[in-house]
Write a protein that binds this DNA or RNA. Structure first.
Lengths: 343, 343
DNA sequence: AATCACAATTGCAACGTTGCATTTCTTATG
DNA sequence: CATAAGAAATGCAACGTTGCAATTGTGATT
């Protein structure tokens, strides 16, 4: 019950500081204070200073509900969090990246976990109907993603982690999957592989198509064989491990493997090792790396890194510019794969 | 540009549905509609039905800003997301768990990533000063956690994933770390281990103390030696791997290891294997499992599971009850460790 | 001294909601 | 028939903000 010195809140009878408080302190009107705080240029410099000073001294922060009610602006961005587990630590890094980017802005982040991708359009519908955020970030886009279609139709600000095939441009930030595939194939070819295999997840994503296409092209260019492990679709880690073991025992197995998902990489690599293969020796492997785990686990393996933290930041910056009215087609960026070749 | 049939929004001239809309449609007053929707018992059943019907037909959803401005209730809960990477996939599972629990309520989840734990009290201060949420979930608590202290002082609803040592009770949900340690020690002892070692992370957490204490007790009870790997503090995965390798070559190494962190488990186990040891044979290992990765990777290893998804749900339920005014001391629950012994 | 132009400031209404105090309606009672 | 008593419904103000229209202040020009 002793007096506190820590808090920035002023008097013991703790009233919230509003525009009215500042108005009373400075002797100006509510409107003037409001105008001033938003940088009204018609105001005398002197009064602007006075207001700014008082606001700072009192620790004034605009009330979100007030602003939102009046302007319709929520100062919220929403992340629709896909349930996919392919990239380990994806959610955390993405959120951290977004957090970093909104630091110092008035934006808050709300996260909407998605349990079933079937329902994803309901989530978007809800946000659209209830104006629950100023903008949305979605991930794992499909070529003709329903969610994207809905938000384009509604002219609602959003950005996707992943491209689509819509004619109307929309903001996106995407990993350069084609470059990833080419780099990986070339690396394997340069290590002497004659037949490479691509292990890749969810075939509904645009990413899938981009990688597959680039994979085949690159293999043709290098003049080597190219397979796709179709059985990888929606496999559990345990199943993938079994597939790895099987593969290890297969005399006709490919001599190079490209793995798009960390989860698959771990499972498959474990299976291959179970089968007695030396990774990087008996069989070559290049994987897409996003978390810090894989390099620890397989320090000798080649990888190509996607920086999800950076992606989160970039997505946010694009979205904020979109919210401020920037043209969609000026808000499309790609992330360069970063190869980490060992030995 | 053709007419849309999909949306639930009514007319083409798309006005937001508010209480006023319902009032106009039903011919009742604003106040009546408002009262009715909140279950005013003084209203005639007939009118209540009429209002409910109209609201449903129009797809009315109360405006968050309006409610918030009027009542001060934000209908938001905030998760302060610790940057720790000890439990793989922790963030995603926690968020999914929370998401599951707020499904169907009016609550939204905002996530505030923490970059530096030093700043964590600033985050809380911000929430407290700006009433930015109705309640907060924090994780990785310390025995005398500053954040907890602040929120107790401010009488602000929160719940922690982890206990503290404050005299004043507060809501928490925690993994039963002591039971974890005992189970692990007993398991190792039953497998014939004579000297066990505990590998555990952040010594600032309450969890650390709980585990260490229980670990020593259990070892004494079993009559076996007990060490703590002090060097584990804040080690990078690469360093942990090196430690594992070192350990493998150490003739005097312990014959049983207990590992509290998945990240450490992966690194250490890899190092031990590098050193030529057979896990589960040459050296016994029990680890705390939270993600799906470890079981894939080390299917033969004993583990004790903590269900983070369930924890997220439980934390949320506790918090919501706290927000509704329930007593703090009735909102303290523990999660039972789930042993998965192999072979 | 009256008028004008312009700079500086202000009042008012509205965003959607709720809770209190009040009014209107209905029915029973003397 | 007047009235009281309760049931049912409503008007009003307020939460904090903003944008427009309107007002006031200050010199300069006639």
């Amino acid at each position: 019950m002793s007096s506190k010195t820590t808090s920035s809140r002023g008097s013991p009878a703790n009233q919230r500081v509003t525009l009215r408080t500042i108005a009373e302190v400075t002797g100006l009107s509510l409107s003037t204070v409001s105008l001033s705080l938003r940088g009204g240029t018609t105001l005398k410099q002197e009064t602007r200073d006075k207001v700014a000073e008082a606001a700072k001294a009192l620790g004034y922060v605009p009330d979100r509900a007030g602003v939102r009610l009046r302007t319709g602006k929520t100062n919220v961005i929403a992340l629709v969090l896909d349930g996919a587990e392919d990239s380990i630590d994806f959610a955390r890094q993405m959120i951290q990246g977004i957090g970093q980017a909104i630091k110092g802005t008035r934006y808050h982040l709300t996260v909407i976990p998605e349990f079933d991708r079937q329902n994803s359009s309901e989530t978007i519908r809800y946000i659209l109907d209830n104006r629950t955020a100023d903008g949305v970030i979605i991930t794992h886009t499909a070529p003709r993603d329903k969610r994207v279609q809905m938000m384009i139709d509604a002219d609602f600000p959003f950005v996707s982690h992943g491209r689509t095939e819509f004619y109307t441009p929309h903001p996106y930030h995407d990993f350069h999957a084609e470059m990833f595939a080419s780099l990986a194939v070339e690396r394997l070819a340069s290590k002497g592989c004659r037949r490479v295999m691509l292990v890749i997840g969810d075939h509904r994503t645009t990413n899938y198509h981009n990688i597959v296409t680039a994979f085949h092209k690159a293999a043709a260019r290098a003049g080597i064989g190219a397979d796709i492990l179709e059985r990888a679709q929606g496999r559990s880690p345990a199943e993938m491990r079994a597939i790895g073991l099987e593969l290890a025992k297969d005399a006709h197995r490919p001599d190079g493997i490209i793995c798009d998902s960390e989860m698959h990489t771990i499972a498959l690599a474990s299976g291959l090792q179970d089968g007695g293969l030396r990774l990087g020796g008996d069989v070559q492997l290049v994987y897409k790396q996003t978390s810090g785990i894989l390099p620890t686990l397989f320090p000798a393996l080649d990888s190509i890194r996607e920086d999800v933290f950076a992606a989160g930041g970039e997505l946010t910056r694009l979205l904020l510019r979109r919210i401020e009215g920037a043209e969609a087609k000026s808000l499309q960026t790609m992330a360069e794969p970063q190869p980490h070749w060992r030995s």
